[in-house]
């Protein structure tokens, strides 16, 4: 577990640093068009090659990573906040409130994922925030279910009984005893959701519904390169693809290590 954790953490650090620092350290214009140098294979001047209008692919990948990470992290956070709030409402109140809320959740999840996402994006002008909203709206359901299930099981613990006898209000029991117990799990769900959200953004952009065409996003780059791949030009597809896959794997690895730490069955170090 140690090695996996270290490798994943290092990869995540590299990815985040790249996205944060590179565009500031090398303030080059990722939109600069050079029609004289279109679709060049990787070289010293353009390590990832150039696209069909001669834009540097390395530069665009780095900017695309920035956009994708931003969308992924913000969308996952938003989805987690919404999911935790809804799950807590259902789990802490129980009874009919729980039934009503969970039927709504079921209703939401019966609508196909992508369709709902497309619907949300289509309501607004193309941009980052509609995409974030679209991802958040389609991803909070699982968190709500996890949080609710955890709360329902925690609610039967004797320590909740003791808190009730100790005069604690429903609000206090929820905020002080129940929520802190589910937050690590909700946090884990959020981390696992980041790669998912990146994929979702890429898919929307790939379908041409995500970010405006000129914005460098990993998905829209892969989409734009579709035609050239068949002509034998592999680099405009490969590099954005790698930039989607590597952060995904790194974040998933980190989340996996975290999950192992949460596992209550892990042997305690000292059992007297």
């Amino acid at each position: 577990m140690g090695d996996r954790l270290r490798l994943s953490a290092a990869l995540v650090a590299v990815v985040v640093l790249t996205a944060l620092v590179a565009p500031v350290a090398w303030p080059l214009d990722e939109q600069a068009v050079d029609l004289a140098a279109k679709l060049r294979p990787p070289s010293w001047a353009h390590p990832f090659g150039t696209d069909e209008v001669g834009r540097d692919l390395l530069l665009r990948c780095v900017h695309g990573l920035r956009v994708s990470l931003l969308v992924g992290v913000v969308a996952a956070l938003a989805a987690t906040v919404v999911g935790t709030a809804v799950g807590t409402l259902a789990g802490a109140l129980g009874g009919w409130a729980d039934r009503v809320v969970m039927r709504l959740v079921d209703l939401f999840s019966s609508v196909p994922h992508l369709l709902l996402g497309i619907f949300v994006v289509a309501m607004f002008r193309p941009g980052v925030w509609p995409v974030v909203a679209s991802v958040a709206v389609t991803h909070w359901l699982s968190t709500a279910r996890i949080v609710r299930a955890e709360l329902l099981s925690l609610r039967t613990r004797p320590y909740v009984d003791a808190a009730i006898s100790g005069g604690a209000s429903r609000w206090r029991v929820t905020v002080r005893h129940l929520l802190p117990a589910v937050l690590p799990r909700a946090g884990l769900a959020a981390v696992l959701m980041v790669p998912h959200a990146i994929w979702h953004e890429s898919a929307l952009s790939f379908l041409g519904l995500g970010l405006p065409a000129h914005t460098a996003s990993l998905g829209s780059m892969a989409q734009a390169a579709r035609g050239t791949l068949l002509a034998g030009q592999w680099w405009p597809t490969l590099f954005p693809g790698l930039f989607i896959i590597v952060p995904t794997l790194a974040v998933a690895g980190l989340a996996g290590a975290w999950r192992e730490r949460l596992d209550p069955r892990r042997r305690s170090e000292l059992a007297l």
Partner: peptide, 22 residues
């Protein structure tokens, strides 16, 4: 009502389950 439920002090069998671990 709070006054009524705090009229009781409860202790259960398993202290591990009766204490908030945090």
């Amino acid at each position: 009502p709070r006054a009524q439920r705090t009229a009781f002090g409860v202790v259960f069998q398993q202290p591990r389950l009766s204490a908030d671990p945090r």
